[in-house]
Amino acid sequence: MLRVERLGKSYGDRAALSEVTFDVRPGEMFGFVGANGAGKTTTMRIIMGVLAADAGRVTWRGAELTRTRRRAFGYMPEERGLYQKMKVAEQIEYFGRQYGLSAAASRRATGEWIERLGLTERRDDQVQALSLGNQQRTQLAVALVHDPEVLVLDEPFSGLDPIGVDALADVLAEKRDAGVPVVFSSHQLDLVERLSDAVGIIKAGRMVAAGTVDEVRAREGRRLLRVGLRDAAPGWAERLPGTVVGTPSRGHALVEPNGHDDQDILSAALKEGRLEHFGWELPTLSEIFREVVA
Rank of each mutant, 00 (worst) to 15 (best):
F157N: 01
S158W: 01
S158R: 15
G159K: 05
G159W: 02
L160I: 06
P162S: 05
P162K: 04
I163S: 15
G164Q: 10
D166H: 15
D170H: 11
D170Y: 02
D177F: 11
G179K: 07
V182Q: 09
V183D: 03
V183L: 15
V183Q: 07
S185I: 02
S185Y: 02
S186E: 01
L189F: 03
L191R: 09
R194W: 11
L195H: 04
D197G: 05
V199C: 12
K203M: 09
A204T: 10
R206I: 05
R206E: 12
R206M: 12
V208T: 01
A209D: 02
A210R: 14
G211D: 07
T212D: 10
T212V: 14
V213W: 05
E220M: 14
R222P: 05
L224E: 03
L225R: 04
G228H: 03
R230C: 13
D231K: 15
A232H: 05
P234F: 06
A237T: 00
E238P: 04
E238V: 07
R239D: 10
T243Q: 15
G246L: 11
T247L: 15
T247V: 15
S249C: 14
G251S: 11
H252P: 01
A253M: 06
A253N: 01
L254N: 02
V255N: 01
G259T: 03
Q263N: 10
I265P: 00
I265W: 00
L266H: 01
A268T: 00
E272S: 14
E272P: 00
H277W: 10
G279N: 03
W280V: 14
E281P: 03
L282G: 06
